[in-house]
Design a protein around this nucleic acid. Structure first.
Lengths: 188, 188, 188, 188
DNA sequence: GATGAATGAGAGTTCATTCAT
DNA sequence: TATGAATGAACTCTCATTCAT
């Protein structure tokens, strides 16, 4: 008996994510995925029950990763400025450094049919807790979590997607955005 | 529903947009579009060169509509608060009232291959002009247009997509968001 | 617009029946059928909704044909001997002359899954009526229709399937069988 | 259910027969058989050279069983009525009690490709001997063995397959059939 | 002997598009 | 202009079988 090859599954995952970036949803067929991963189409079905389950599982894994990445540098004794700065900058970095993964999760979660079958994740819960704590400690204004959430992460996503000519310009934009959101959210 | 020429083309457009919402990209095949529009598949090719061109043209038309809708209630003599409020609320209303169209344009513009062949539009130019004017008149802070743009429109999109239990909760969230952005962007 | 080509549909039907005889159920794939019929696999789906529906429709048509063929030479003024003789000999002839069709209907009706979705047919009803009449007229013994039915048609099927060395031997067997069943069923 | 060697092979055999009844030929894949038998697909190939050989071997075994079952209650000193009654009733009972096995052998023997590779069996020879003896002893009429064979076993098969509402109706039909065939075949 | 992983071939079906009317 | 018929290519997925352990 051959053991299940984790490397092979990783090949498949990477191929899925890469193809989704390069060719979009339409280009992400089982045949193309298999060829890109260097396996037979039938092999894909050893690791995933079907195409939909495959995309869902990969999505859930990467989506969790995103939240973990964002939160992992936070510590409870940081000041408000630092927390906001860190959250935004980590998210920005994640998008830049994981272009393909980010694009895949965005594509996936924008498709309502796929998203609906997806259950819930632990990431957002942690983040909600963090925001509630900051409000209780009178560090940030008492806005609704939905709005804080939206204003913290949607804009940074917008500017991270844009491709600026030089890195210095991009850094400038990011600094400014951090400044804006600190001013908006922090008390005093 | 079937009269002539333009009527028929509108049927096709509506079917495309509706199918894209109901069944996603995969469910939007020429055959299904044609059946939903009450025409033959071959007829679609009288109005559009091919499927890609069809999607592109419909996208461009609707994308322009969005900007037009957002800007059409603005007048030069409005106060800063009103301008910001109006921009955000109009965008929110547009998303709510044109769920299908909004979803279609989002889906489309998130697909890199499709988007690339799409050229530029007039809508954003007008908006950029507006923002620049407001900054010159010392009404809003001198942030970069990219960041203003991102912070004005991404968050509202986020909360418009969410489905709240009651309309009053949704209205509350929107009011708060308007308040936040007014505070952030307006001088004094 | 091209008109639906009845000749093409007949080609498909013939290919199905022939392949079922030559290669059995397993050999009857859409691809093989299409190739044998000289059309594209996709064309098959213009004439039939799917494979199961295709087999079902072809079956029903041919099954009706069988009954019609058996009954079409009977007239109300025939004597009991003639009726029994004619029924058996016509059925025998049908099997010999329509080997492929007969084999197809047998294959089909022996598969419980397929058969179940098949509804009812007019043929058996007519035959039941005939048997009941003969019993009422005191021409044949008052056995249950099920048993008469079984004893009239199952044995002839058995010997028709067998391949005898010469036709004369086959004819002898058939004559004997007719004689046996006349003796069994007829009064006096 | 899993002990060793023969136990395992029996598991496979049972799964084959059961699946063939439940899902027909198409549903009887090696993978499904293996899963139903609680073994690996590869294990099937330890006991059988390939799928076709597997079906053939199982068929031959069960087909022999059928004849053995039918003949095993006969003794040379039985009267003609008893012999005919016993043959028919045993066959009927076999079909009812071994629905799955019966269905499997029927399915198998109706497929021309499979059947051809199947050689001859000992069962029919014994039966032919029995019939010839009865004719020599002037117990039954001197009809050809083919016709006797056909008329003895085809009708009972027909009515055994039918599903009657109550057992008493089924028993009635069977009694009548036995009576008919005794009258037809026995001298005096 | 026994297994789960692996696969090329092929299954049924739908695709975007063109053809003939 | 408008159509339903027609199709080669591609789709998702399963097949019987073999491989490596």
């Amino acid at each position: 008996m051959r053991k299940k090859d984790i490397e092979k599954q990783n090949c498949i995952k990477n191929s899925v994510v890469q193809l989704m970036l390069e060719e979009g949803f339409q280009g992400t067929s089982i045949a193309k995925i298999a060829k890109a991963a260097g396996v037979s189409p039938a092999t894909v079905y050893i690791y995933y029950e079907n195409k939909e389950a495959m995309l869902r599982e990969i999505y859930k894994e990467y989506a969790e990763n995103t939240f973990q990445y964002m939160l992992e540098n936070l510590s409870p004794d940081m000041r408000g400025e630092e927390i906001i700065s860190e959250l935004i900058r980590r998210y920005y970095l994640f998008i830049i450094d994981n272009k393909e993964v980010f694009h895949f999760t965005e594509q996936y979660s924008s498709c309502p049919i796929l998203k609906s079958n997806c259950g819930s994740m632990r990431g957002p819960a942690n983040l909600n807790q963090l925001l509630t704590d900051l409000k209780n400690k009178q560090i940030i204004h008492n806005y609704s979590n939905d709005n804080i959430y939206a204003i913290l992460f949607s804009p940074v996503k917008s500017i991270a997607i844009k491709s600026y000519d030089t890195e210095s310009v991009a850094a400038e934009r990011l600094d400014e955005l951090v400044f804006m959101l600190q001013k908006l959210l922090l008390k005093e």
